[in-house]
Each structure stands twice: as structure tokens, then as C-alpha cells.
């Protein structure tokens, strides 16, 4: 691990949804090539952290710097950061009216100005990477959940981001589909992609994570290297949580 330059720097980030204090003093530093897995009970704010990093949610206090650009409400800073950050959603959010190939080329053509031919060549390359090039001409609705999520990963990769965010990428999948998605994510991790993954897949976390982050009630309660984190968690709350999810 060459954890040197931080690409994401969150310092004392606070956020409220109305009266609800959803993020409390979140500070987190992510280096290039680092893989971070965030876990915690539902409602702990883990998805919100990830959504703040690419500006889908706005934080009200604190500072988020992504690849040297501070995240503000300004349109330019948002556009600049989103160009570097890919995102994979729990519900895939593929465009149902477009073919798989069009899902992948829409961003590169419209926002990166690639020619159709270049964008399609790139799209096919990434479809190969997620092992479903033969599905290029189908509609998302014709694919299984696992295939849809892999298309969603490929769609993000087509923008050639520096950082990939995963917001519970396997939570909406049938159990037999989870493995194929995690496999793709592991391959991505092996290639050195900087990743922040919100997940309860602890097998994946053990294999891929450089750092585990445990959140509860809007706070980062515990961080640690996976082996330490899993075998000897420091806090009571984290021990409880791990017991519950590892029991199954």
C-alpha cells in the first residue's frame, strides 16, 4: 500500500436533514489507491457520507476536498468533482429507456464530448471487464439484478473516474447475484482503484479493504485495519454490530 496523497479529505463535516443531525463531525482521509469499507446499522449515516462526497447531498458544516477541489454549492466545483468520482447505487439506477450500450455511452458522449464510435469502443471494453459484452444491445429490464449492477459499474467506469463510490451495491440483489458483483469489485480493487464501499458484505471487506470504518448514529465510532477491526474491535457498539451481522 502506498498511502501517500489524500484524494478525499473530509474534516468535521456536519449535516442535518431538517432537525435530524445525520452526520456529526465526520473526518475521513482517503489516499490514492486506498479501499475503504464503511459499515454500520441502518440510519447511521453511511450512505449520506458517500453521497456528500460527490455532492448528491450538501453538507452544512465542515470541509470536503476531493482531488484538490473543495466541494461547494458552486456548479463548477460540483462538475469538476463529479468528473473524478464514479458512483454505484443500491438500486442500480440504469436508464430503462436506453440499451445497455447507450447507458454506457450517454455520459462520455454528452459530457466528455467523445465521438459515438470512441464512446462505444470504450463501452465495449468496460462491458468486457464486467464480463457481459454480449448484453450490450439489451434493455436493462431484460437483465438480472446482478447483470444490471455490473452494467452500472461499467457505466461509471466509462467516465474513467479516479475514485469509485459504492452505496450498498449488493443490498438489492438476490443472494446468488451478489457474488458476481463482488467479484467485479474485487477485480477493480486489485487494479488499484480508489474505492469507498458502503456494504455489509464482510467477506468482501476482509479481502479488499485497507481500512474499515464503523459508523453509528451519524458518527464514525471506530476505524481500523480489517484484521484488527474484525478480530478485536475496540468499542462495545462495534462488537455488538459485528456479532449480529457475522452470525448469519
Amino acid at each position: 500500500m502506498t498511502a501517500t496523497t489524500p484524494v478525499i479529505e473530509m474534516s468535521d463535516v456536519n449535516k442535518w436533514f431538517g432537525d435530524f443531525h445525520v452526520l456529526k463531525d465526520i473526518s475521513l482521509s482517503v489516499s490514492t489507491g486506498e479501499r475503504i469499507v464503511i459499515c454500520g446499522p441502518s440510519g447511521s449515516g453511511k450512505s449520506t457520507v458517500v453521497r456528500c462526497i460527490n455532492g448528491l447531498e450538501h453538507h452544512q458544516q465542515g470541509k470536503i476536498v476531493v482531488d484538490g477541489t473543495e466541494l461547494t454549492n458552486k456548479r463548477q466545483s460540483l462538475a469538476k468533482i463529479r468528473a473524478e468520482v464514479g458512483m454505484v447505487f443500491q438500486q442500480f439506477n440504469l436508464f430503462p429507456h436506453l440499451s445497455v450500450l447507450q447507458n454506457l455511452t450517454l455520459g462520455p458522449i454528452k459530457s466528455r464530448g467523445l465521438s459515438k464510435a470512441d464512446a462505444e469502443a470504450r463501452a465495449m471494453e468496460y462491458l468486457e471487464r464486467v464480463h457481459i459484452p454480449e448484453q450490450a444491445d439489451k434493455r436493462p429490464g431484460q437483465l438480472s439484478g446482478g447483470q444490471q449492477q455490473r452494467v452500472a459499474i461499467a457505466r461509471s467506469l466509462c467516465m474513467e473516474p479516479k475514485i469509485m463510490l459504492f452505496d450498498e451495491p449488493t443490498s438489492a440483489l438476490d443472494p446468488e447475484m451478489i457474488a458476481e458483483v463482488l467479484e467485479v469489485m474485487l477485480e477493480l480493487a486489485d487494479e488499484g482503484m480508489t474505492m469507498i464501499v458502503v456494504t455489509h458484505e464482510m467477506g468482501f471487506a476482509r479481502k479488499a479493504a485497507d481500512l474499515m470504518v464503523f459508523m453509528d448514529e451519524g458518527r464514525i465510532v471506530e476505524t481500523g485495519k480489517p484484521d484488527v477491526f474484525f478480530d478485536a474491535p475496540k468499542t462495545e457498539r462495534c462488537t455488538q454490530f459485528l456479532e449480529q451481522i457475522l452470525h448469519h
Binding site: 463529479r82 458512483m87 439506477n93 440504469l94 436508464f95 455520459g107 459530457s111 467516465m159
Partner: peptide, 13 residues
């Protein structure tokens, strides 16, 4: 669904 617009913005639209 709002996720459609969110996905669109993450691919730079």
C-alpha cells in the same frame, strides 16, 4: 424516480 437524475449527474450530465 430521483435516482435517475442522480445517476445522470454522476455520469456528468
Amino acid at each position: 424516480p430521483r435516482g435517475q437524475s442522480e445517476a445522470a449527474s454522476t455520469v456528468g450530465l
